[in-house]
C-alpha cells in the first residue's frame, strides 16, 4: 500500500485545513478513505457501535493536490481506509499560515502513520523551515469497509434551502441552553421552524421565504404533536425531532465556505444537511430523529 500526495498552493491548503478542523469539531475519530479520484472523511456515531455514518465528506483530489499517487493492497482493494484521530490531524494543520507546500504520505514508523511534511517560509529570513508530523493511523481491514460506505437513506419528504448557517447556529446555541431536543419543521410554503419546549417556556424561531428544492407531500400529520400556526396546512409540514446538541455540532460546518446548504427531512425519522462548495467538496450530515 502506498499513498503520496502534494499540495502546492496556500489556498487549497487553507480550505483543506478548514474542512479538517470542522470534522474534528464533530467527532474525535474518523475514517479517511483514499480513493483514486476522491478523498473521503467518514464519521460514525461513536456511541452506537457499528452503525451507518453520520457524516460523509467527499473531496475531489484533483482540486487540491498537484501530485497524487495511490497504490492499494491489491486489484480488488484499490482504496486505502485509515482510522485516525481527527483532532490530531486538525492540530497538525492548525498553525499553518503561508505554507509553501504540504506533502501527505503513508509511512511506517513505529506504527503506520500519515506523515505530513510541511514547508513554511521563515518569517525572519529567506530560509524555509521544515515541519514534519507523524500522525498515527490504523489501517482498516477490507472486511470492515462496508461499515463505511455511503449511507443509503430513504428519500426525503422535503428538501429546503437553509438560511445563513451562522444565524441558525447562533439561535440553536441559545436554544440548547433551555432544552435538549429541538423540533425541526419545514413547510412546502418555504418556512423553516425550530421549536423547543423547556420546563417553563416554549420558543419558536420561524424562517420564511426559503427555497423549497423538493416536496414529496402530502404528509400524514394527524397526531397531537403537531402544533400548527392555524393558517398552515398541516399536510404540508414535514417535521423531525432531533438532539439539539447534535444539530448545533453539525452547524459548525458554517466555517466551510459554501453557497447553499440543503436540509432534507424524512418525516419524523431523519434530518440531513448537505452542503456543497465551489470546489465540489460535498459534506453530508445525517441526524436521526428522536421518536418517543
Amino acid at each position: 500500500m502506498k499513498f503520496r500526495a502534494v499540495m502546492n498552493n496556500s489556498s487549497p491548503i487553507r480550505e483543506f485545513s478548514t474542512i479538517v478542523s470542522t470534522i474534528s469539531k464533530l467527532s474525535k475519530e474518523c475514517v479517511l478513505r483514499i480513493a483514486d479520484d476522491m478523498l473521503y472523511f467518514i464519521v460514525s456515531d461513536e456511541n452506537t457501535g457499528p452503525a451507518p455514518p453520520v457524516l460523509w465528506c467527499e473531496i475531489p483530489q484533483s482540486v487540491f493536490f498537484s501530485e497524487y499517487q495511490l497504490v492499494g493492497m491489491d486489484e480488488t482493494h484499490q482504496d486505502i481506509y485509515l482510522g485516525l484521530n481527527s483532532g490530531n490531524l486538525a492540530r497538525s494543520f492548525v498553525s499553518l499560515k503561508n505554507v509553501k507546500s504540504l506533502k501527505m504520505k503513508l509511512t511506517k514508523k513505529q506504527c503506520p502513520c500519515l506523515t505530513l511534511e510541511i514547508e513554511v517560509p521563515s518569517t525572519t529570513s529567506h530560509q524555509t523551515r521544515q515541519i514534519v508530523h507523524d500522525i498515527p493511523v490504523a489501517v482498516v481491514p477490507w472486511k470492515n469497509w462496508p461499515d463505511f460506505y455511503e449511507p443509503r437513506v430513504p428519500d426525503p419528504d422535503i428538501s429546503i434551502e437553509l438560511p445563513s448557517l451562522k444565524q441558525l447556529r447562533t439561535t440553536i446555541d441559545r436554544m440548547r441552553t433551555m432544552a435538549s431536543e429541538v423540533m425541526v419543521r419545514a413547510s412546502a410554503g418555504g418556512q423553516l421552524i425550530l421549536q423547543i419546549r423547556a420546563d417553563m417556556a416554549k420558543v419558536s424561531t420561524r424562517f420564511k421565504d426559503l427555497n423549497v428544492a423538493h416536496f414529496d407531500g402530502p404528509v400524514d400529520n394527524s397526531d397531537p404533536e403537531t402544533d400548527s400556526q392555524g393558517n398552515e396546512d398541516s399536510s404540508e409540514i414535514v417535521q423531525c425531532r432531533v438532539d439539539a446538541k447534535k444539530l448545533a455540532l453539525f452547524l459548525n460546518v458554517d466555517h466551510i465556505s459554501t453557497n447553499t446548504t440543503l436540509c432534507s427531512i424524512v418525516h419524523k425519522r431523519l434530518v440531513t444537511l448537505c452542503l456543497q462548495t465551489d470546489d465540489n467538496v460535498k459534506l453530508q450530515c445525517f441526524i436521526s430523529g428522536i421518536v418517543y
Binding site: 438560511p163 444565524q167 439561535t171 417556556a201 416554549k202 420558543v203 419558536s204 424561531t205
Partner: peptide, 22 residues
C-alpha cells in the same frame, strides 16, 4: 398568563422568534 415575547432582527427580515414563558 405566560409572558409573550416577539423578537425580530433588524438585519434579516425573513425571520422572527416568539417565546412563551410561564
Amino acid at each position: 398568563s405566560p409572558l409573550l415575547l416577539v423578537l425580530q432582527p433588524q438585519s434579516f427580515r425573513n425571520v422572527m422568534t416568539d417565546c412563551e414563558i410561564w
